[in-house]
Design a protein around this nucleic acid. Structure first.
Lengths: 217, 217
DNA sequence: GTCTATAGCAGGATAGAC
DNA sequence: GTCTATCCTGCTATAGAC
């Protein structure tokens, strides 16, 4: 919860602390005072470095959220490079693994997807950023990879619905950890449960995609 | 956005206005003053009827959210009564239709699922209420319906994961309307797009469930 | 670049008239 | 049950010392 890294400079500590708090509570529910307490600095620091609270929020997306999203995408691409896909299975598996078991820690992923879920529930300028810089380009890229395995008459619009279904699950199993834990009894802090969730999503989506194309079993 | 029903008494108007605002913005982002403006009543009314802001929030779940969830569940049950399920397909279809094309209006559904998503992202006493009164009993019921169609060795824990995958999509396509609209170009206000989304979720989940049992095509 | 001090306002909650 | 008036806390933002 608290961010005790004292090594970085004030600006970076503010961004780290702000991201955690904004993800957990939402923009309005977090006060500047709360952030500067977690970042171990002074009240005026926010206004000095970011002008106003709102810009701190947007800078969290620019300098933290987007680069992290790119890291996940890179993990996906690298995985396909090392293991060129011969079937739909390979792509879906690489995709799910990158997002669920990829380069992010459990906490990092929850934070990342909580911020995204909040923006999607109540869009602001940050959603525009997310969609234009991250979501849309990635969807286009993945759609291109999937095309060879899809029926010829399938358009991108239809394909995007399948991708949204897939990401809705990745998002949900990340941001709704409490509900998932209560309903399944599983514990996200054990790596076996995490792998279990990951396998489940792969299987479900693989067959979900199988709705349009036969899945090799 | 505004709630202009002046027929009901103050208490009911407050609950109606509060639910809309809490769903759209979250608990902390909504001020009592904003609520009473929408409900066309006085500042002191909240404290008179609910003691404090927090209790108004919880009462929204008790007297609005839970009964609405029950309406959706009843629509599902009635649909199965009228059309006894002979396969997994029938149940999945009835389930999805009840939630996506059931008794709720587009706005009502978005609000309903926005509130739920917020509680799952940051649990409070209201999530306990939701899980104990609505989610868990319904999951138990649906698991019982699905059991005959599932492999003998499949436990409820595994089945719940499939249900969570299904509901994550229902939730997402409701609360993330903006992102879905941007990515697909569809318009939720047309009934054809709504039906399209519904069909998509049915198909995807049917095949997702098909991961554990053969789906009749 | 970081601090203290403070302006100025919005928030939740209450007292007491009607 | 509904209103006005008010208390007081906590908020964002800024000024100005160091």
């Amino acid at each position: 919860m608290t961010d005790d890294l004292l090594t970085e400079n004030t600006r970076e500590r503010l961004l780290d602390a702000a991201e955690i708090l904004f993800a957990n509570k939402g923009y309005r529910a977090v006060s500047i005072r709360e952030i500067i307490r977690a970042a171990h600095c002074n009240l005026a620091a926010v206004n000095y470095h970011f002008g106003q609270k709102r810009n701190l929020y947007l800078e969290v997306f620019r300098s933290r959220w987007i680069p992290r999203a790119r890291r996940v995408q890179d993990a996906f691409r690298k995985s396909l490079e090392n293991n060129p896909p011969h079937s739909l299975d390979d792509i879906v598996r690489a995709l799910t693994d990158a997002f669920i078991q990829g380069p992010l820690s459990e906490d990092e992923r929850q934070r990342h997807h909580q911020l995204m879920a909040r923006e999607q529930a109540r869009p602001s300028e940050a959603l525009e950023l997310i969609v234009n810089e991250v979501m849309r380009p990635f969807f286009v890229e993945v759609a291109g990879l999937l095309h060879p395995f899809m029926p010829d008459d399938m358009g991108d619009d239809a394909l995007y619905l399948y991708l949204l279904s897939m990401f809705s699950q990745i998002l949900y199993f990340s941001f709704a950890r409490a509900a998932v834990t209560i309903m399944t009894g599983g514990d996200y802090n054990t790596s076996s449960f995490k792998a279990h969730i990951s396998d489940h999503i792969v299987t479900f989506c693989l067959h979900g995609f199988g709705a349009v194309v036969e899945v090799s079993k």
